[in-house]
Design a binder for these strands. Structure first.
Lengths: 173, 173
DNA sequence: CAGGAAAATATTAGATGTCAATTATTCACC
DNA sequence: GGTGAATAATTGACATCTAATATTTTCCTG
């Protein structure tokens, strides 16, 4: 979490008093929304991190990296991984180094491009991840269990809309 | 975003083939939902981090800490801050040390409890944060601009529901 | 084919974050 | 009053993450 405010002070509430009637609560709706998103993310992440550590002696970044490699058995470029995980390349290097040391991930040379290589799960890595993923999905489902399926679909749809806007915004910059 | 998978491999899709007809897409709804939440969080956070650095030469955790102190001019206990920010106490200690060095935050002794103290923004800290907060709110509003007010309210409501469930779940553990 | 732009990764320094253990103080209770 | 549990904050060890820079290799263009 880089990461993370639960409540952000709303200075403009006191400073732009001329619009009190015009936008009674709507004014800070976006901010409230962002703080809730942040809180939900942090709470979810904290739960998943704790359980991964207690049940599997691993961490969330490692799980995330392995999950990408699980989906691409042929292997992935470092750059592809860093984009998928939305982290910087230097980060992926360090994570990969550790997983390679433990025999869960291997680096495969690419004969056509000596700058790059692929990283992939070893058989041991695949086996370990498969076990974790089942538990992980159960955890996620149980954490969302307060919402019925309609709510979940609605939330999923709204987040999808937001996500495409954010991807656009980043591409524009 | 300790942080953060964009896509999590769905092992159970291939392993529990008996339920293909029963739950065609609903099966992994929760997982898709979580991944979208994660993606939105990461994209938002990345944008805000970049802009804070480019425009104000600061970082998100520092902004978050200052925002809490801005809301509580009388000061906050370290423990209170770490709960509000949802990070560990050791983390807050380090952040605070840096901000104190720069004269933006000060520690105030509590005569009634010599174990504890309060931290609060200095006048310089308040002034700096007030400027940042205005820009920050503008950024957040623009990042949510793809959604009309109805969508934002709906999303806010759904996240509120999720959040209370997550708080419960953590309390139960 | 030469020479420079672009790409893929590594490397580094520094900030952020967790967790476990430690210190100092207060509280509760006998 | 005095002892033990609980509380507030820090410290140290280590993992994670960003951002900036360096290195190597490939690609492109003339």
């Amino acid at each position: 979490m880089s990461k993370k405010a639960l409540q952000v002070a709303q200075v403009s509430e006191t400073e732009s008093s001329e619009s009190i009637e015009a936008l009674p609560t709507g004014d800070h709706l976006a901010l409230r929304l962002w703080l809730r998103l942040l809180a939900c993310h942090n709470l979810m992440e904290g739960e998943l991190r704790t359980r991964l550590r207690d049940d599997f002696e691993t961490t969330l970044p490692r799980f995330d990296l392995m999950s990408q490699l699980y989906r691409y058995p042929e292997g992935l470029r470092m750059r592809a991984v860093s984009q998928l995980l939305m982290v910087t390349g230097g980060n992926v290097t360090g994570l990969t180094d550790n997983l390679v040391k433990e025999g869960l991930v291997e680096r495969r040379e690419d004969p056509t491009d000596r700058r790059a290589y692929f990283i992939a799960l070893t058989p041991a890595g695949r086996a370990q991840f498969a076990k974790m993923a089942v538990a992980h999905e159960q955890w996620v489902m149980s954490l969302f269990s307060a919402m019925d399926e309609t709510d979940q679909q609605q939330l999923c749809k709204l987040l999808g809309k937001l996500k495409s806007r954010l991807v656009e915004a980043r591409a524009a910059a």
